[in-house]
Design a protein around this nucleic acid. Structure first.
Lengths: 234, 234
DNA sequence: GCAAAAGTGTTGAGGCTACACCCATGG
DNA sequence: CCATGGGTGTAGCCTCAACACTTTTGC
């Protein structure tokens, strides 16, 4: 906390913003929600949805508010990712931005509302590819997205977070495809299902099946948050 | 990033601070470095060393600067922990604080310098104990310390960070005592040494020994940063 | 001589990989 | 009928936990 020197009053010259990395899975590809900037700086570039924190607003609550304003969806999962505070990251004024990772269930597309209409989902791999001139992202948002994807990839290993990327009911094949999409690898269907079933509280059976008698079983998310031991990434 | 409305200029009414959770091991106990506040608010309370971010200063660099000012030691390891932004966490003005986790090698005590003289190391367990009126910590620093200890405990599982809590040369017994101190458990000496030796690049032998011919072998930190598979916490 | 700590060996349990195989569905 | 995807069985490998045992240091 501020160690304020003798007689010195703290200066309050910063703006604080939140930026959301909203990830979901579309057709087997991990995608991020981006909006297009309508004014300088970086006019016309894509950027993360974000907004300034109100002067009497909690930073975490500001993130939830921005999500609601941008997507008109219920907030399924959010966690703080990190804070980006290079002095020149916004050419206008000093902005310190707190980034958040949001995971959206598949199929939960934002309907037409204010900011949602101006945005869309884009595959993350071209966005975070280092070399080519991929669609230019505003500010330091390429690094923020890369950090978010790293976080999501490793969190799938030791948490049950993959289920939050699915609707309420899903098959073990759906869950496996989430892992395959996020990690970009193929997994053995049988060993994967065995592992998931063996983790206490990861998924619980609904008793119903996807189609008829012999069709894949439907599960819902269980109460467990952590997997111990973790799922191994190939 | 700031989605600035029509004609609306962003307001810059925040102060941004950095707070450091400096952890080290003293006599087998995990301890945090605290200073005593000399002025209100929370006058006389203990608090994390911290300071305000300069108007042209990178936030991460501010953390390094504050560490140097508080302890006159080289900075061995630092990582961002999280950002704490409740609107009323500082009664004077709106301060958003970015917390950092710093790990200090054992024996690296700050010598007499400015802020170091006003501070000292305190065992973390009483500090983060929920119930009793432990030495009152300023602001939300008890939660920050608890988050830092959680982070340190889990990072020891899958990284080679424990070695940064030791001097340049150490025995596998020293390393095991680091784990035992941070985790608060006992570990099998033989199985632990086997595991550590088997992780490629965790430690590398110096060729020397602690005392004479049959004494414990001395190691230094290796190049690996991650352990895969992880060390299991009992 | 004795306690403490480091190193070595071994055994059994459990998890994971990689298969092969069966079953049901849906074209 | 066959292709697809879900579910089961099993053999081999690796890791870890829990021992016992030896050696050396330092008192």
């Amino acid at each position: 906390m501020p160690v304020i020197g003798r007689g010195q009053e703290p200066e309050a010259g910063f703006a604080v913003a939140v930026d959301l990395v909203v990830l979901t899975i579309l057709d087997g590809s991990l995608e991020a929600f981006l909006v297009r900037r309508r004014r300088p700086p970086f006019q016309g570039c894509q950027s993360l949805p974000g907004g300034l924190v109100g002067s009497q607003e909690d930073v975490d609550e500001a993130a939830a508010r921005v999500f609601g304003a941008a997507t008109d969806l219920p907030l399924p999962y959010i966690e703080q990712l990190g804070t980006y505070g290079a002095p020149d990251r916004d050419p206008r004024l000093r902005v310190v931005s707190v980034a958040y990772l949001v995971l959206l269930p598949v199929g939960a597309r934002p309907t037409a509302k204010t900011a949602a209409a101006a945005g869309g989902f884009f595959p993350v791999n071209p966005l975070i590819a280092s070399s080519p001139a991929s669609p230019t992202l505003a500010f330091d948002h390429r690094r923020i997205i890369a950090d978010a994807v790293d976080r999501a990839r490793s969190k799938l290993e030791y948490t049950t977070l993959a289920a939050t990327l699915l609707p309420d009911e899903f098959t073990l094949g759906d869950l496996r495809r989430v892992y395959e999409s996020v990690w970009g690898v193929g997994l053995h269907h049988s060993n994967f299902a065995r592992k998931v079933r063996s983790v206490d509280g990861f998924v619980e059976p609904t008793g119903r099946r996807a189609a008829a008698s012999g069709a894949p079983e439907l599960f819902r998310q269980g109460p467990a948050a952590l997997m111990m031991p973790a799922l191994m990434r190939p």
